[in-house]
Simulated scan of single mutants.
Amino acid sequence: MNSSLFLSQLLNGLQLGVLLFLLSSGLTLIFGIMNFINLAHGSLYMIGAFVGAATYNASGSFLFSIAAAMASAAAVGLIIEHLVARPLYRYDHLYQVLATFGLMMFFNELAIVIWGNRPYFVEIPEVIRGSVMMFGAEYPIYRLLIIVVGVLVAFGAWFLIQRTRFGMLTRAGATSSSMVGVLGVNIDLLKKSLFMLGAALSGLAGTLAGPILSVQSGMGDPVLILALVVIVVGGIGSIRGALLAAIIIAIIDTLGRAYLPHLLGLVLAPAAANTTGTALASMLIYILMAFVLAFKPHGIMSSAKR
């Protein structure tokens, strides 16, 4: 096994894990703290990618495109919270799933109307377009930047929820909103703020993914499935669990896709090995989820146990 190739794939898995974390962290906060299932969260990721790509292509400023994408996703998240989520908080999860699934389909079609049905491309900014030597192999600077941003966001989100007054009030409001409301705290404002935070993180993930993926309608749907697996494995409501689970799942998926076809090629024909290896690699993360649910039903770092 080539050690340089293995380390490169490991870093690719880490980079994918960071993107999954940025998406799933907002989703796990909204689900775990507000007890609301938002299937339109992947659409916020798509909106961030489109707005970030369009803004960067128009302005040439990558930082401005990130700010615009996060602000746009947060604004859409606020609208979703006010018009859809707020009336459904007191209802069963089934109503939430149906409503947000409808929103997901709506946003996919809206993206086609605004940006067209073809992939929308954006280049990596020139200043971070090169590569650096790591472990005897070149690795793109931009992918390293994604990893660094993800680690910083993970620490910031954990600190906000666990070590600040906002986080304390949000967690208390999730446990007993009526009691916190009696103390003079605006529960509706807390919920809106948390929803906007989760949406902004999703928009950030979409912006960062834009230069390395094709930006197109529906791009948030398959990533949403992975994000749901992440929050189940990591523990609903747990930032640390989301980070750990996202990295584990991404590394398993990346290494599986890279090496399973080669290993199966030792005993199968090349075409069959590629087909079977890719299918098995996709199955590995769901096998992991089933294993975790069997032995740790609340996730590896469930907030219910803290």
Results as ranks from 00 to 15, higher is better:
34 M>H: 07
93 H>K: 13
190 L>S: 00
174 A>R: 01
135 F>N: 09
58 A>S: 15
188 D>E: 15
137 A>V: 01
8 S>G: 13
135 F>M: 11
168 M>Q: 11
298 H>N: 14
184 G>S: 04
141 I>N: 00
262 H>K: 12
198 G>N: 12
159 F>S: 08
130 G>P: 06
134 M>T: 09
44 L>F: 11
143 R>C: 09
20 L>W: 11
25 S>M: 10
75 A>P: 10
224 L>A: 09
201 L>V: 04
263 L>V: 12
235 G>H: 08
232 V>S: 12
2 N>P: 13
272 A>G: 03
223 V>R: 10
123 E>I: 11
151 V>R: 07
34 M>R: 04
182 V>G: 02
7 L>Q: 11
283 M>R: 00
126 E>G: 15
109 E>F: 12
79 I>Q: 07
165 R>W: 10
207 T>R: 05
166 F>G: 00
212 I>V: 13
108 N>D: 13
270 P>C: 00
79 I>A: 15
25 S>A: 15
9 Q>C: 03
259 Y>C: 13
192 K>V: 10
289 M>H: 00
27 L>G: 10
260 L>R: 10
47 I>N: 10
117 N>H: 10
11 L>R: 02
99 A>Q: 09
155 F>V: 13
103 L>T: 02
178 S>V: 11
214 S>E: 12
177 S>F: 03
166 F>C: 00
280 L>V: 04
131 S>M: 12
180 V>T: 08
139 Y>G: 08
296 K>D: 04
168 M>W: 07
158 W>T: 08
166 F>M: 03
208 L>N: 01
44 L>A: 05
175 T>K: 08
53 A>T: 05
137 A>C: 00
20 L>C: 06
69 A>I: 05
277 G>F: 15
129 R>T: 01
230 V>A: 12
104 M>K: 07
292 V>H: 11
106 F>S: 08
7 L>P: 01
51 V>Q: 08
168 M>N: 03
59 S>W: 15
160 L>S: 04
28 T>K: 06
18 V>M: 15
253 D>M: 14
18 V>L: 12
302 S>C: 09
56 Y>E: 04
59 S>M: 14
179 M>Q: 13
